[in-house]
Computed example of a mutant assay.
Amino acid sequence: MNIKQYLDSTYLKTASQAGLSEAENNDVVKKAITEAIVEGFKLIMIRPEYVVLAKEMIQKASSTLLIGTVIDFPEGKSSIEDKVKEANQAIDDGADDLDFVCNYEAFKNGEIALLKQEIVYGTQIGLAHNKTVKWIIEVAALSDKEIIQLSALIKNIVISNFKEEDYASVFVKSSTGFYRTENDLPNGATIPAIIMMLENASPLPVKAAGGVRSYEDAVEMIRLGVKRIGTSAAKEIANGENTTNQY
């Protein structure tokens, strides 16, 4: 199976997180973009400040590589106004996919009206500009019951507010890859979590992010029904190699 068009090649570390200077981290981003172009991946997923750079490199290479970026990353706690502002800037800069971190803490605290509002506003902005929107639910921060409930809630909000032809452009996504778990438990996509998401988010598509570390893992996710996979080791996975990368 050629899995490259399922893979969102991902680099989301800041310079400080990577232990690099800003210039060195910028070089890592450039390398990731170049690799995604050469390998023919679906998308390069980068932080908002690198979208303009990616756009320039992709245009220069006459590539069809898509650009994705994260909104309110990684905690999802910002106001709706801040989320909207960040999304609009990403659109202006040339992003194709907007991966919002939903306010999962608000959800856990029962603030459902707030969550509904940000999902409607964020999705409206993306769809109005023909962008793909993904809502990151951070499965490692949720119980199984909460994964089921939040996946279903996002689905129901989208179905209630948008047209059927829009559903394929609104994903539910598993993880940021940056959530800190206790006792070194998985912080990304697991098979049980993805199954719960698929069963409860449908007809919205699902993106598995974090924890996919081999070609076999990726194929299993695809066979389950996942439409996109986020990984910082896209080349290794596509080439059938295992990786120890955490995302």
Rank of each mutant, 00 (worst) to 15 (best):
R47Q: 14
P48I: 04
Y50V: 04
L53I: 08
L53H: 06
K55G: 13
K55V: 06
I58F: 05
K60Q: 06
A61Y: 03
S63M: 04
S63A: 10
L66C: 05
L66M: 09
G68C: 13
F73L: 02
F73I: 05
G76L: 03
K77I: 04
K77G: 13
S78K: 12
S79I: 04
I80T: 07
I80G: 05
E81I: 05
E81N: 12
E81G: 11
D82N: 13
K85R: 13
A87M: 12
N88C: 14
N88M: 13
Q89H: 05
Q89C: 03
D93S: 15
A95E: 00
D97M: 04
D97Q: 08
V101S: 04
Y104D: 10
Y104T: 09
E105R: 12
F107D: 01
F107C: 10
G110N: 08
E111P: 02
E111V: 03
I112S: 07
I112H: 01
I112R: 04
A113D: 15
A113I: 06
Q117I: 03
E118R: 03
Y121A: 10
G122H: 00
L127E: 00
L127S: 12
N130E: 15
N130C: 11
N130W: 00
T132F: 13
V133T: 12
K134G: 15
W135M: 11
W135C: 08
I136Q: 09
A141E: 14
S143C: 13
I148W: 01
L150K: 11
S151F: 05
I154A: 12
I157F: 02
V158M: 02
S160I: 03
E165N: 14
D166I: 01
S169L: 14
F171L: 12
K173P: 06
S174Q: 10
S174M: 07
S174P: 01
S175C: 15
T176H: 06
T176A: 10
Y179N: 12
Y179I: 05
T181Y: 04
E182F: 07
N183Q: 10
